[in-house]
Design a protein around this nucleic acid. Structure first.
Lengths: 163, 163
DNA sequence: GCATTTTAATTAACATGTTAATTTTAGTCC
DNA sequence: GGACTAAAATTAACATGTTAATTAAAATGC
């Protein structure tokens, strides 16, 4: 075969997955490339990306207990605790203890929070449309499908109950 | 054309991209699913994920100035400043002012840092092999290719010079 | 040659990630 | 029904993300 093919580098698990072909980093970079487009909008409305996610989940699911909310919005429980304090102070959400299970906190999106989502919606749609124009709707769908399949195959190590 | 095709729901950009079909969230979740496997290893060696990335970049690229290092390791400059202080205190890296351009900081991986990477390599390789076994090498390659293409098509808004 | 602008790092201030420990309330077992 | 265990939040401590402002040094323009 090839006479001077370089010997494969020793497989110690580091050389092989150089940063440019590392799954975690590739996912991180792609995500950053997308969020970069949305950040100005979020800043304009004075909400962080995570606060945005929390409010959107509340908007789509209705009132939720903190644990479910954290799972769906992809934030950790300690982060959510702090965020809820901040969001409640700003009047964007409300919280109260669950009457039946007093360990739980129920979280509700306030009209004021809803108003922010509503106000940002047109620009958000425009940004997403621009992304679609650049990437093609098919590519986005394909990537989402790929990621969905990825998640279905790769089971969580420690199932957090919320599928 | 179609007589009863359902009218497209009003595109306010929120309903349409429910969290489960949102690109940023899908990327975030997939990444978390992978990192979950590596976190125990990182914790065992008492390094964070970001510190791990910084040391790996140094290992593969050799000494670098802070800006290039930050770009390649996907950390922000202010974060890197703090990380370098911490890593240098622990003896894992060294820094010095560039002689020719005294604005720049040159960062070098110390033997002690290299030793950590080396010590973690076998377990790292094992974890990656396990991921490949669950997902299939083809699926991983396909996803990486998809993400690469994604990045090539979606230009950064504000090119940070490092392509 | 000097003022202006640009660039690399840093600092500051606040928000979130991450883990461990703690508190409070529910469930369980005997 | 009281001790034990499990679950939901919270707190604490530290690391990083994010933006804006600042500092120091280099490039630029005239």
């Amino acid at each position: 075969m090839a006479e001077t093919s370089p010997p494969p580098p020793l497989r110690d698990g580091l050389e092989l997955h150089a940063p440019h072909r590392s799954l975690p980093i590739a996912l991180l970079r792609a995500r950053e490339r997308v969020m970069e487009r949305f950040r100005p909008l979020l800043n304009a409305h004075d909400v962080t990306e995570q606060q945005w996610r929390v409010m959107r989940v509340l908007r789509e699911s209705g009132p939720l207990d903190a644990k479910t909310l954290a799972e769906r919005a992809c934030v950790l429980a300690p982060s959510l605790t702090r965020m809820l304090r901040s969001l409640e102070t700003r009047g964007l959400i409300s919280t109260q203890r669950d009457a039946e299970d007093r360990r739980r906190t129920r979280v509700v999106l306030n009209p004021r929070g809803e108003a922010i989502l509503h106000a940002a919606a047109p620009q958000s749609a425009k940004i997403y449309a621009q992304l679609e124009a650049e990437l093609g709707a098919e590519r986005i769908e394909r990537l989402l499908d790929e990621l969905d399949a990825f998640m279905q195959v790769l089971e969580p190590r420690d199932p957090p109950s919320g599928a």
